[in-house]
């Protein structure tokens, strides 16, 4: 029970609340809100500030921002989660094998990873997206590939550390095979770092999607994503700042929640981070 106590601090409560809210919205909103609410245009009410009819105002095409933001949640969360999952699927085995076996394999793999790390993640994602043609799936692939090197390197570091622990040696001398050692001993002990890092990566993935869409190389209309909404608001910053602030705040709150949650998760799962 004392584990749960650690979540009950300022950061933890806010973090969990925000994350839960966002997840709820992402899952429930598409079920409750009919899709036309976000796409119907009311040209007479275009660029109107928040009022009773439109709780968060309207954009340049007269679309209700409140509903757009709610429905956009699903797109953004979907992209971020898929991208992080993808980077895990590639990066986890890579890092594990590299860190556990060490030697030549490790040298070669890490040389490759380090080279990839010289490319800024956003640049990689942009290039891949441009190369493949920007759409929803390719945005996922682009962000997923861009995040893989960092994750792989982190996991490799942890796997290396755990592989040298006495309990792994003890298990080896009691007859365990390599696969049993990796899956039964190394993997459970690197999970805390993987979980924390995944949470933080989710936050960055949302930011990345926003950035990509902002530049026009991410999700494309008619999909509604937060990044696209910010991009659309660029020309109207003077007259209607809320068109940028509404989606921007949505991104900010989600990322904030994820970061806080990840921080508290780190304190709980990895006592080494406490000095």
């Amino acid at each position: 029970m004392s584990i749960f106590k650690k979540f009950l601090n300022f950061k933890g409560i806010i973090g969990i609340t925000l994350v839960l809210c966002v997840i709820l919205i992402a899952v429930l909103a598409p079920l409750i809100i009919p899709p036309e609410f976000a796409t119907r245009m009311d040209m007479r009410a275009r660029l109107s500030p928040p009022n009773m009819a439109h709780w968060m105002g309207t954009d340049q095409l007269g679309r209700d921002l409140f509903y757009r933001v709610m429905l956009g949640a699903r797109t953004s969360i979907n992209i971020a989660t898929s991208a992080v999952l993808m980077s895990l699927v590639i990066g986890l085995p890579l890092g594990l094998i590299s860190g556990y076996f060490g030697g030549r394999t490790d040298n070669v793999l890490m040389r490759l990873v380090d080279t990839l790390l010289s490319f800024p993640a956003l640049l990689l994602a942009l290039t891949i997206s441009a190369v493949l043609g920007p759409n929803l799936q390719n945005t996922i692939i682009a962000i997923g590939i861009a995040f893989t090197p960092y994750l792989a390197r982190l996991i490799r570091g942890e796997a290396l550390r755990v592989a040298q622990m006495p309990y792994v040696e003890a298990a080896r001398s009691s007859g365990a095979t390599n696969s049993r050692l990796i899956i039964g001993h190394v993997l459970p002990n690197i999970m805390p770092v993987v979980i924390v890092q995944s949470t933080i990566s989710l936050a960055f993935a949302i930011l990345a999607e926003a950035g990509l869409s902002f530049l026009g190389l991410g999700t494309q209309p008619p999909e509604a994503s937060w990044g696209l909404m910010i991009q659309a608001s660029r020309d109207y910053l003077d007259r209607a700042p809320w068109t940028a602030l509404v989606p921007g705040t949505a991104v900010a709150l989600t990322v904030l929640g994820l970061n806080m949650f990840g921080d508290v998760l780190r304190d709980v799962l990895d006592p080494r981070s406490q000095s």
Binding site: K11, A203, G211, I230, G248, V251, A252, L256, N259
Partner: peptide, 11 residues
């Protein structure tokens, strides 16, 4: 610092 990290640069 969390606030700073969470808000996107362009925001």
């Amino acid at each position: 610092s969390i606030l700073g990290v969470s808000l996107p640069d362009f925001f």
